[in-house]
Design a protein around this nucleic acid. Structure first.
Lengths: 144, 144
DNA sequence: CTCTTTAATTAGATTTTATTTTAGTTTAAA
DNA sequence: TTTAAACTAAAATAAAATCTAATTAAAGAG
């Protein structure tokens, strides 16, 4: 029963992508598929490398164009946690992150935190917040 | 009385810088002075531009070398909130930030938040955390 | 105060790497 | 079939960060 649902779910998903105005090219589908459930917060380069094998002709322009569209559609969020490149997150619900000082890896944190909007920001329009933890991930902790 | 203390305080500060092993060159003092009480979270470029007039011969190497030393000494922290360049913060005590989505400005938030270390990170060595707010600063809010 | 040593500074080139552009080609969808 | 949109390859851009070799200057010793 599980297996028989897969094509149906897939079709539904494609339908959804179409419904929001995405022209479905194989490259786009590959990017979407790569991002789906991806918790690595990949960079454009990461996506490119990952798909290079399947699409040897893939161009960076395609990656960047597609990401731009996905961001505009609200399906992907751009992360500002890496001071050398943009990284992208397909999980757009509010959540938090841990940044490893050793390897730069970014982990998701799904806990809820009670945060009040501080007085310092009373003149700002605060739209969002996230808690950013930092330290060493399990692997880098070992190496120390 | 206030004024008469200033040279003394200055001397004390120089003494302190020396005591931690900083060779005090005019350029370094200028960088230190520029950073002192600076809440703009400047980039290397910002520092360079700001001091260019007073030190027309200033080199980027000096900026980067000095920043490296200051970071090593714990007098400055590197911020990872801007995905295009490193920015630096002379306030090394734990505090939080607001990032303007409009102009990229970073504001300090001094409030205290009660944050527990989430289970997701039980295998990590969590050394630090900060709350990052985002939205529009007063100026960008106006422009909308 | 002068000398010596050691570290810092300089100018400018270079590297690096992310991202954007371009112009021609291909293709999804109606 | 048509056409607007997407794709490609490669070059261009852009900007941050690093490196180099020669020069200068701070700090400590005498």
């Amino acid at each position: 029963m599980r297996t028989s649902n897969i094509p149906k779910e897939r079709a539904k998903k494609l339908e959804f992508y179409k419904s929001i105005g995405l022209k479905l090219t194989p490259q786009r589908l590959a990017i979407l598929e790569y991002l789906e459930n991806n918790t690595e917060h990949p960079s454009a380069e990461d996506i490119y490398s990952a798909l290079k094998e399947r699409f040897p002709s893939m161009s960076f322009a395609t990656i960047y164009n597609t990401l731009e569209v996905l961001i505009k559609k609200g399906l992907v969020k751009e992360l500002g946690l890496d001071s050398s490149k943009k990284r992208f997150d397909p999980f757009t619900h509010p959540h938090h992150h841990f940044v490893c000082k050793g390897c730069g890896k970014i982990l998701d944190v799904e806990s809820r935190f009670e945060i009040f909007i501080p007085e310092d920001l009373s003149d700002c329009m605060v739209e969002d917040f996230q808690v950013v933890f930092s330290g060493l991930c399990p692997e880098c902790k070992e190496k120390e």
